[in-house]
Amino acid sequence: MRTGDLPTIRPTDLAQARDALRDATRAGQRVLLRGAGTAQSWGAPVREADLVVDTTGLDNLVAYNPADMTVAVGAGMPLAKLQQSLDGQRVALDAARVTDGATVGGLLATADAGPVRATYGTLRDLVIGVIVVLADGTVARSGGHVIKNVAGYDLAKLFTGSLGAFGLVAEIVLRVHPAPEATATLAVACEVGTAFDRARTLLDSPLEPVALDWHAGRLLARFEGTASGAQTRVRKAAELAGADGVVLEGEEEDAAWTSLADLVRGAEGETVMRAGTRPDELPIHAAALEALAAEYDVTARLTTSVGVGVQTVALSGGDPAGHAAVVAGWREALLASGASVTLHRRIVGLDDLVPSWGPAPATVPLLQSIKKQLDPEHRLAPGRFAPWF
């Protein structure tokens, strides 16, 4: 479906967002909620929508309290823009899509995160308050503007990863952290099969890397803090790693993490899938992926947040049938150990060969019940979670 051909409404405040969804309900319209559009290919394709509600007009800075370490923003604000508004502080999230203009609300709705997820988690772990608009225009709130606030049902967690199927996220209150003065990265050459063991050595040390990712034949360990503190810890980490460890600085360090982000985003003509697994099962799953890619003449590039077990794979080369066989085969292998695989990007023709979602998990009846309560007519993001609901 080409969303550019659909009528579009771009509310600029909560009242307009409420009215847009209320009026769509009265007209019986099916609605696609869209921010910057950087994750529209995630999950199953949305089909037969009648209207796009563009959230990028909800981009105001509502309140910023540096002393309380909180900031409230419209969900349509790009995270990169928000970061520039903070004084010596940051939202501790470095998802690959941030440089593409991903919005705060979109990052919550996709449950996306980057390498520092190992320390700070995803956006859901930083949200302390949220305002949402349900399918019929009902406005709901939870949380507040202080970190220790506990008020009502935690809507932020409910909407995390909902991909626009439960309602529109209008405003978010976030916890912020001090911005580091400096970063330093240790690159340890190793095969993916031994990456977990090498990472465990660093995790068992008192050096506290904020990110541990395996990418392009190297384990990357990022350290943050004061200039002297980051340098001291990365050099001690290099001593632990021995001859295989190299300290990256400046442009070389930036290039390593940019390369990782490029793989996660993917490119035209690639299929990108993300998996959540047990961290210690990385060698098994990497070997299975390599065997499948070789069997179907497809190139598979893998990067993984080693200590967390979040793996992203970019498939290129071959044809749609080959991509479909690798996706289906790897998904089957991971499901046997309780893991999951989600499509984030696909080669043309893939949707006709393999589903975007795997077999329904045991939680699907619960998700269906929530969907029925929040969007009983199934008008929001129709088809996004097909065939589950």
Rank of each mutant, 00 (worst) to 15 (best):
R2E: 13
I9W: 07
R10W: 02
R18S: 14
L21A: 10
T25G: 12
R26H: 12
A36H: 02
G43C: 05
R47W: 08
R47V: 15
A49V: 08
L51A: 02
L51E: 02
T55Y: 02
L61M: 02
A67N: 05
T70G: 09
V71I: 07
G74V: 03
G76K: 00
L82Q: 10
Q83P: 08
D87F: 07
Q89W: 06
V91R: 12
A92R: 09
A102M: 01
G105S: 10
G106L: 10
L108R: 03
A109I: 02
A111Q: 11
P115A: 11
R117W: 01
L123P: 11
I131M: 04
V133C: 12
L134D: 03
A135S: 15
G137Q: 12
T138C: 08
T138H: 02
V139D: 06
A140P: 01
S142R: 07
H145L: 13
K148T: 13
V150I: 14
A151M: 01
D154L: 10
K157G: 13
L158H: 05
G164N: 14
G167L: 10
A170H: 03
V173A: 14
P178D: 14
E181H: 11
A184K: 03
A184C: 11
C190R: 00
D197A: 15
R198M: 09
T201C: 10
D204E: 15
L207H: 02
V210G: 05
A211Q: 10
W214M: 09
G217S: 12
A230C: 04
A230V: 05
R235W: 08
K236A: 15
A243L: 05
V246I: 11
E252Y: 01
A256H: 08
A256R: 08
A256P: 01
L260Y: 11
A261E: 09
V264W: 00
V264C: 01
R265H: 11
G269Q: 06
T271E: 00
V272Y: 02
A275G: 06
A275P: 00
D280K: 04
D280F: 07
E281Y: 07
I284R: 15
I284F: 13
A287L: 05
L292D: 10
A294R: 11
E295A: 14
T303N: 07
S305A: 13
S305T: 09
V306L: 09
V306S: 01
G307T: 13
V308W: 08
V310C: 08
Q311S: 15
G318P: 04
G322K: 05
V326N: 07
V326R: 08
G329R: 00
G329V: 08
W330F: 13
W330V: 02
W330T: 07
R331K: 05
E332Q: 15
V341Y: 06
T342D: 08
G349T: 02
L350Q: 01
D351Q: 05
D351W: 02
L353Y: 10
S356V: 02
S356H: 10
T363Y: 12
T363K: 06
T363F: 14
L366P: 00
Q368E: 11
S369A: 15
K371E: 06
H378P: 00
R379P: 01
A381S: 15
R384V: 13
W388P: 07
